[in-house]
Design a protein around this nucleic acid. Structure first.
Lengths: 186, 186
DNA sequence: TGCTTTTTTTGACAAATGTCAAAATCGTTA
DNA sequence: TAACGATTTTGACATTTGTCAAAAAAAGCA
C-alpha cells in the first residue's frame, strides 16, 4: 500500500473509492542527501510521508541554523505553517539521507476534506495528534535543562541519536554542540 | 449570541439547526478568583470559552508551579491533552480572576463531529490554529533568550503583563522571577 | 593505505540565568 | 491611618550554559 495512505489510515477508515482517488493524487519524490525540499520563503504546501530516509527542518537565525524537527520513516511531516496556512515558509527542509517520500498537495487534500467526511475526520485527528506532539515539545523546552532534554531524547527517540550528527541534535535541543558533547561524556 | 458559538463560527459556518442543538449542550460556569477548574489527575474533557475573566494552567514540577498558558476572553482554552485524548490531566487550571465561562463536553463535541460536516471542519481548523500557536511557542522557547521572550510577550500579549503577576509571567516564560524583574527594569 | 574533510572533544574563559535572603513596595482591610 | 500580607526588587554569589580556538577522532574519498 502507498505509504501516505497507510499513514492516513492510522487515523480513520477510508472507503475504497476514496483510496482510489487518493492514489491518483499522491506523488512521489526521490532526493539525495543534502538536497532541499524547501527553502526559506518558498511555498510548498503539501502533506509528506517519508518511505525511507531522513529530513531536518531548520530556521536561519542570526546566521545560524537552528533545527526544529526531524522527519523519519512514516512520520507525518510538514510544518503546520506551510501545510495549514499556505504562507511562505520561514523554514528550510533538507534531506540528511537519500530519501524517498510521498506527498499530496494541500489543495488536493482540501478537496478531499470537502467531499469526504472520513477524510475530514482524519485531517482533524492528524492536527490533534500534532498538537499533542507540539505541547510535549513546548513543555520540554520550557521546563527542562539541557541535560534533561538530552535524556528525554535518549529515551524517546534513540534512533535520532544514531542517525543524526551531534551538532544537529544540539541545535534541536536548543543547546550548543559543546555543551551536548560534555553532557554525553557523563 | 452564546460566546462559545461565536468562537466556533470564527472557523466556519453553522446551520441554524446545529446552532440550536449546540445551545442545548453548552453550559456555563461562574467561578471565583483562586478556584480550580481542574486539578492534576482529574479528567475534565471539554472545550471552554471564557466570557469574562482569566485563567492559568500550570504543572507541578519539583514542588514548583510552572505556568504553561493563560486563558483570556474569547480564546479557546483547554489543553489538547485532556480535550483531544481524555486522559487524566497533568495540568492544573486555576482562575486568576472571577470568571464566567461556557463549555461543551468532548463527548457532545464528538457527536457533533460525527453528525455534522461543518462542525468537523470547524474542529479541524481549531486544531490547526492551535498547532500554529504551539509551533510559535516552541520556536520562542527554543531560540530566544529570557530577554527576547519578555519582549515578545510585551509585543504580542501586552494585556497579559497588565493583568498577571510577575511571578506567573516569569514561570510562563521559563525564567525566574528575579531575572524577569531585572530585565523589566531596563 | 594515505590524505582530506567533517565531526567531536577539550580547555579557558565569558555571559546569562538561577538561588537565597532581605529589603522595599504595593494593595487590602481593620 | 495603621498594620498585615502579598508582590516585587535588590544584592551577593553559585551554577549552567555559551563562545572561541585548537586538538583529536571519525568518516569519506582517491
Amino acid at each position: 500500500m502507498n505509504p501516505l495512505i497507510k499513514q492516513l489510515k492510522k487515523y480513520g477508515n477510508l472507503t475504497s473509492e476514496i483510496e482510489t482517488e487518493l492514489n491518483e493524487k499522491i506523488k512521489s519524490l526521490i532526493k539525495q542527501k543534502g538536497d532541499f525540499l524547501l527553502k526559506e520563503g518558498q511555498i510548498v504546501s503539501s502533506l509528506f510521508v517519508i518511505e525511507k530516509g531522513l529530513v531536518r527542518s531548520f530556521y536561519n537565525i542570526n546566521e545560524r541554523e537552528i533545527n526544529v524537527w526531524f522527519g523519519f520513516e512514516s512520520g507525518i511531516l510538514g510544518s503546520v505553517m506551510p501545510l495549514f496556512f499556505s504562507q511562505p515558509s520561514i523554514e528550510n527542509i533538507q534531506f540528511l539521507e537519500d530519501t524517498t517520500l510521498y506527498y499530496i498537495s494541500s489543495n488536493d487534500l482540501e478537496s478531499f476534506y470537502k467531499s469526504s467526511q472520513e477524510m475530514n475526520t482524519i485531517g482533524r485527528k492528524m492536527a490533534e495528534e500534532y498538537c499533542k506532539i507540539l505541547e510535549e515539545r513546548s513543555f520540554l523546552l520550557q521546563t527542562h535543562t539541557a541535560e534533561q532534554r538530552y535524556h528525554w531524547l535518549l529515551k524517546n527517540q534513540p534512533e535520532a541519536l544514531q542517525r543524526i550528527s551531534l551538532g544537529h541534535i544540539a541545535s534541536y535541543l536548543g543547546i550548543s554542540q559543546e555543551t551536548l558533547s560534555r553532557i554525553r561524556k557523563k
